[in-house]
Simulated scan of single mutants.
Amino acid sequence: MEGDLRAVRERMLEAARGHAVFDGWSEATFRAACRDVGIAPELGRALFPRGAVDLAVADHRAGDRAMAAALGREDPGALRFRDRVARAIRLRLELADRERARRAAALFALPQHAATGASLLWGTADAIWRALGDRSEDVNWYTKRATLSAVYAATLLYWLGDESEGQAASWDFLDRRIGDVMRFESAKARAREHPLLGRLLAVPGRLLRDVRPPADHGADLPGRISEPEAP
């Protein structure tokens, strides 16, 4: 039974993709997908309670999985780490349908869906870091994803409006954003080596040293503070 429902979900999502290009992730798209699959809208809502919103969420997460699978088939050994990050973001965008992504961006820009959109951006950043083998178990788990979320969101918006051949301008934009991050990280490293700044930066470091990521890294959870060690 569960397998049958999963198959219906997949068929609904595939049907909705064709309609979303023209009607956006809307009620019209949801009802058209139900009609194409041959199920009543009531059953469709049992599978996708928020209708087209949940279809858009499923489409986005499928894109994350496709990116991770494609990255896993490549050999990143010859690339610098910053280039591996850029490659993952580029893959994520190249595997997406730009019109569907544009319609999704419009949907998740609405105030009532903004939190869902932010969660999806975080999920994409998490999927990229996991695909790249990140094993962070402290506050770096959060800072890496927060930074990458910002880079990905900015590049996504640029890419949606990019009319350059092969979206070359988008990839140049992406390289500049990653360059900005690398310069910031270098500045932080130099600050830590400074006698005075190093001592000042050590204070928040001590406060955050017990922060841990969610037990299930894929869960939508804020993480946890580990129990202090016994004296």
Results as ranks from 00 to 15, higher is better:
residue 1 M to F: 08
residue 3 G to K: 14
residue 5 L to F: 11
residue 9 R to W: 03
residue 12 M to K: 13
residue 14 E to R: 03
residue 17 R to Y: 01
residue 18 G to T: 02
residue 21 V to H: 06
residue 21 V to P: 06
residue 21 V to N: 11
residue 24 G to N: 04
residue 25 W to T: 02
residue 25 W to H: 05
residue 27 E to I: 13
residue 27 E to C: 11
residue 28 A to T: 14
residue 29 T to C: 06
residue 31 R to C: 12
residue 33 A to R: 02
residue 36 D to T: 03
residue 39 I to C: 01
residue 41 P to E: 14
residue 43 L to W: 07
residue 45 R to I: 12
residue 48 F to P: 00
residue 48 F to M: 00
residue 50 R to G: 07
residue 51 G to H: 05
residue 52 A to S: 13
residue 53 V to R: 14
residue 53 V to Q: 02
residue 53 V to D: 00
residue 55 L to E: 01
residue 59 D to H: 05
residue 61 R to P: 12
residue 61 R to V: 13
residue 61 R to W: 04
residue 64 D to P: 06
residue 65 R to W: 09
residue 67 M to D: 04
residue 70 A to Q: 13
residue 71 L to R: 06
residue 72 G to A: 00
residue 74 E to H: 07
residue 78 A to T: 15
residue 82 R to C: 11
residue 86 A to M: 06
residue 87 R to D: 02
residue 87 R to M: 02
residue 88 A to L: 06
residue 91 L to H: 02
residue 92 R to Y: 04
residue 92 R to L: 05
residue 96 A to D: 04
residue 97 D to P: 01
residue 98 R to N: 01
residue 101 A to L: 12
residue 104 A to F: 02
residue 105 A to S: 13
residue 105 A to I: 04
residue 109 A to W: 09
residue 112 Q to C: 10
residue 112 Q to K: 09
residue 114 A to I: 08
residue 115 A to N: 10
residue 122 W to L: 14
residue 123 G to Q: 05
residue 124 T to I: 08
residue 125 A to F: 05
residue 125 A to I: 01
residue 126 D to F: 06
residue 128 I to W: 03
residue 128 I to S: 05
residue 129 W to F: 12
residue 130 R to D: 09
residue 132 L to R: 09
residue 133 G to A: 10
residue 135 R to W: 10
residue 136 S to Y: 13
residue 136 S to P: 00
residue 139 V to I: 15
residue 139 V to R: 08
residue 142 Y to F: 15
residue 142 Y to W: 11
residue 144 K to N: 13
residue 148 L to E: 09
residue 149 S to G: 15
residue 152 Y to E: 11
residue 154 A to T: 07
residue 157 L to G: 06
residue 157 L to V: 08
residue 157 L to K: 06
residue 161 G to F: 10
residue 163 E to F: 06
residue 163 E to T: 13
residue 166 G to F: 10
residue 169 A to C: 10
residue 175 D to V: 08
residue 184 F to G: 13
residue 184 F to D: 15
residue 185 E to V: 12
residue 185 E to D: 14
residue 187 A to M: 05
residue 188 K to C: 14
residue 191 A to K: 07
residue 192 R to S: 07
residue 196 L to T: 04
residue 196 L to A: 06
residue 197 L to T: 01
residue 197 L to K: 04
residue 197 L to E: 00
residue 197 L to M: 14
residue 198 G to I: 02
residue 199 R to Q: 15
residue 200 L to R: 13
residue 203 V to G: 07
residue 204 P to N: 02
residue 205 G to R: 01
residue 206 R to W: 11
residue 211 V to F: 06
residue 212 R to T: 02
residue 212 R to A: 12
residue 217 H to C: 10
residue 217 H to E: 07
residue 217 H to Y: 07
residue 218 G to S: 03
residue 218 G to T: 05
residue 219 A to I: 00
residue 219 A to R: 00
residue 224 R to K: 03
residue 225 I to F: 13
residue 225 I to E: 14
residue 226 S to P: 01
residue 227 E to N: 12
residue 229 E to H: 11
residue 229 E to V: 15
residue 230 A to L: 13
residue 231 P to G: 05
